[in-house]
Design a protein around this nucleic acid. Sequence first.
RNA 1: GCUGCCGUAGCUCAGUGGUAGAGCGCACCCUUGGUAAGGGUGAGGCCGGGAGUUCAAUUCUCCUCGGCAGCACCA
Length: 661
Amino acid sequence: MEAIKKDKNQQINITLPDGAVREYTAGTTGMEIAESISKSLAKACAMIEVDGHYRDLSRPIEKDASIRLIKRDDKESLEFIRHDCAHVLAEAVQELYPGTQVTIGPNIEDGFFYDFARNEPFTPEDLPKIEAKMKEIIARGNPFVREVWERNDAIDYFRNKGENYKAEIIEDLPEDQTITIYRQGDWLDLCRGPHMPTTKNVGTAFKLMKVAGAYWRGDSNKAMLTRIYGTAWHTQAELDEYLTRLEEAEKRDHRKLGKEMNLFHLQEEAQGSVFWHPKGYTIYNALEQYVRRRLKDDGYQEVRTPQLMHSKFWKQSGHWQKYRGDMFVVPDCLQEGKDDEDVKIEKGADWLALKPMNCPAHVQIFNQGIKSYRDLPIRLSEFGCCHRNEAHGALHGLLRLRQFVQDDAHIFCREDQILSESIKFFTLVQAMYKDLGFNNYKITFETRPEMRVGSDEIWDKAEAALENALKEMGFEYEVCEGDGAFYGPKVGFIIRDAIGREWGCGTLQLDFNLPERLDANYIGEDGNRHRPVMLHRAALGALERFIGIMIENYAGKLPHWLAPVQCVVAPITDEASDYATTIMETLKNKSLRVETDLRNEKINYKIREHSVAKVPYIFVVGKREMEDGTIAIRKLGSQDQTIMSVEDAAAMLSESCEAPY
RNA sequence: GCUGCCGUAGCUCAGUGGUAGAGCGCACCCUUGGUAAGGGUGAGGCCGGGAGUUCAAUUCUCCUCGGCAGCACCA
């Protein structure tokens, strides 16, 4: 136990945020300071910041310090509310389910979780019971009491209690680490703290969200624990807002919208591969053609390389050794037999693999003929279909597939061109994201990992060139030390969508490894052979994935140039059907995607249906329009109607549906 | 791949130890209606697959496949 002694003779100076300095006896607690200022402040206080560090209000302050009192209502106390809530959750679980071991319970975005070890996992039905118990514990309002324990005492205590995970955590803590325990009533937990004064401060604006499995220490070879996710907020209003946000996100789910809008489907016979329906494939094509225009104008040459290649090729590239298990491999022989069991594969048959990526094939194209330094940079792009045998549990709609197409390209250049090529690519990505409506993205710079190829000298140069390019662009970026690929440093573009979720999309990766392995070279100015540097790059990543993100970002209301149907011409009575058809033909001749709706339905019905289908424009025509040669235009999301001549309407629609590039 | 939950009509979902229901959609008929659902009639299901318990299984049990959530993975 930490001795708390107040030395009556020693005074300390406490500086408040406004600069005022007050004198207190050494050993005065944060709470006592708050009380000395005002009773109501003390009541509202949740935490104290002492010289820039959060501390429990109950801890004595021994020397001069600058402090700041933090109220429960302050924004920054949310993290304490959540963490305290996790402790309450753990206590509730152990009260209700004796024998359950506690492990860890950190905060995460929008909430917290706690991992438990229990023979029988929790089910969603357990959550209301646990919540009720939590409310009880919060109502008890037991103070959080901090205690400092001897390391071995702590290990013994938890071991004896059967809390083997906690004991293991303490054993793994550095020798000089102070072991602190937080007690709330009869229950206690190992915790670094700090905590708010009592469990009552957690409040009631919390909710347990879901249960799930999670590996101990995030290691799939270790035991699977059961994790309970929860969320907690300052007020019920904030909690409600959060829950509404989740509902909104659910409505935007691209799998749901994809079905509703008849864009694509997935089925079990082709797990992880998309069946694009006509409407969905219209989006896909429009996007691909946009990228194609962009790349062509940026000096890329499009190529197409084989789908199936021999294993020796993948062995040479190094993929076989590293990714054999994740590749789709087929024997290169005629297979005897009709049923699965009968199929005989010729012994010693060669193996072919479906390509998991395009890069080694691009090196083959580069390697044809002799390249001069004057030929560089060479930029080869390919909308190549790649297959990766992703784990079943990883598959997720369009966002994680086994078969996908990236807007992939590889740039072969000299070392002295890395900077300019990087800048060129960054400029392109920036322009493309702007075109596609993503103005909110973050950039990561990932540096050399421990396991890597290439000399430190090359890494120094490569990292410097990439980072310089980022700086020249004026980008703000987050440095992720050691996260780079084994073959070179990486830059990642992570898009933030309309509801704040993040998706890794674009990437630029320097590669010193593959040109070496596949013996790519060019003749330099000096007449000698040199290794080109290879830049792997994608702006959107997998097109399928990007479309999924766009659907969610736009909640299905895609930019007009991508909308599968840009306009529906809907007659009010069948008297106007011919007129509607004529208009459709006129618009189709302008390469617009237009349909008519000649069904025997009321105009209300048609409006509703096409609005729900998120068609950007409905051109309504009745007797009046037919006589005047006009159209009544209704734009998606608006109740108004605008009357225009057919000519003006066609011009308006053309302009509105024009691609950004 | 791991843990948990789920699998009933084209879609969304209800339901029962005695072989099944709703709404939407679809087909046909009536209706020709001016900006977010007009009315009627009808068709449509091996209750994911296999095995077991039972006189009887869509319902209970086990296995398997698939979906979902999370974890792990993501060249």
